[in-house]
Write a protein that binds this DNA or RNA. Sequence first.
DNA 1: GCCAACGTTGGC
DNA 2: GCCAACGTTGGC
Length: 154
Amino acid sequence: MNVWLMKSEPDEFSIQDLYRKGRENWDGVRNFQARNYMREMALGDLVLFYHSSCKTPGIVGTATVSKTAHPDPSCYNPESPYYDAKSSANKPRWDQVELTFESMCQDTISLRYLKSLPTMADFELITRSRLSVMPVKPPYWQVLEPLVRQTRDL
DNA sequence: GCCAACGTTGGC
DNA sequence: GCCAACGTTGGC
């Protein structure tokens, strides 16, 4: 099983929203590297849900991949904020995956805290701050796993 | 609200 | 293929 991290602005779509809905298509990714990582995701992969551009940026919960990468229809919908003129129904440039809610963290694992840990110094979350989808490699997962396993009762 | 980082676009 | 201009992300 692979582990990934995906960012979302809680004002747009939060872990609470995912909890309420149960599952959701992760659309709107418009960055090639992030898209390519989504294409590598397998059914059942674990996703760490990260809140960005908010009071306390950090990991807030987990989800699993319940549908692998498939075309993101918002890219050829002119009404959508994610519309991309270079995409069309027979040539979608962008993909989405479907996520299913798994758990809510007891406490937010803040970016500030992760930055303070020497082992996390080369974690892409810190070194490539603008990437919104990234793999969580074993040394980082080792640190994060016990933290994300402290979940909140729902 | 500011600004650094950095991905994308387009002219040449 | 280079690179300047531009737009966006996201922490602070």
